[in-house]
Design a protein around this nucleic acid. Structure first.
Lengths: 136, 136
DNA sequence: TATGCATTGCTATAGACAACAACAATCGCT
DNA sequence: AGCGATTGTTGTTGTCTATAGCAATGCATA
């Protein structure tokens, strides 16, 4: 079939993102995580007492939609909340959450390394800066 | 906030794809199209009498989910179906569909050009080959 | 030519996700 | 003390995708 679409960077971007996201999702599901879960765990691990709102801003997830996500991570015993004042609550990893986060990091880092290996060496180092120019 | 995530190509890939897809979606909505619609119109335009199944395979959309998509394009008067045999039906653009497709192409091509311009020149030409190495 | 398997188009359903509006409580600034 | 902004939350909606199933047809081959 004639298909001019892959010549469009925007289209290839979407397809590549879908394909790789699918792969990563499959690997993370082995340890019971979705990609969002892993992102949240990593951010909470690096930023003790971050608030749900701040997390949402960083990840471009609306406040309202953070609720079920955090509830699940809390129910699993990976994060807990501690009141910062009468209104805000800080998030932090439990011990089991820290272990889970390390697992997730291992999976992700292995995956990222594989991704880069698929790219011909002459293009490899340009991907990240090019991508970051598109959204940051 | 400390955020190690943008250092992961896979994460940046997803974020860049979301950001750019959102922008393109907004522009395409000006002419009443979603991105899938535009993809389908372009493919049908390049491949007269392509079947719904073949389209789905090319775009990674399941047969069942093509139905409402194509129904809408047909209801809008942009595509029509002609029986190829007793079972398969070929898709083709109407005249108004061809006009709509040209509009979509103009928007997409302008958008893609802008995307590339955002990327520092030394990285620009590496994006497409790097992306295509990830999913094709 | 007849049989069996694959394919096509479609219906119906369920789950995941994101957007949106609204609300009470609280914070922080003036 | 008052007021606008922020936080966490509920509830709802629409969109998208996966899945299973079905009747009809095509295709290959025995």
């Amino acid at each position: 079939m004639r298909d001019p679409l892959p010549a469009f960077p925007g289209y290839s971007l979407r397809r590549a993102a879908n394909a790789t996201a699918g792969e990563l999702a499959s690997r993370l599901s082995d340890i019971g995580l979705k990609q969002v879960d892993a992102s949240i765990l990593i951010l909470v691990g690096e930023n003790r007492d971050v608030t749900a709102s701040a997390l949402g801003r960083q990840l471009d997830i609306q406040r309202a939609n953070m609720v079920p996500l955090l509830k699940r991570l809390e129910d699993e015993g990976w994060i807990f909340r501690e009141p910062l004042d009468g209104k805000s609550q800080g998030l932090a990893l439990t011990e089991s959450g820290e272990a889970k986060t390390r697992e997730a990091r291992d999976i992700i880092e292995a995956f990222e390394a594989e991704l880069l290996e698929r790219i011909p060496p002459e293009h490899r180092d340009h991907l990240l800066p090019a991508l970051n120019a598109l959204w940051r």
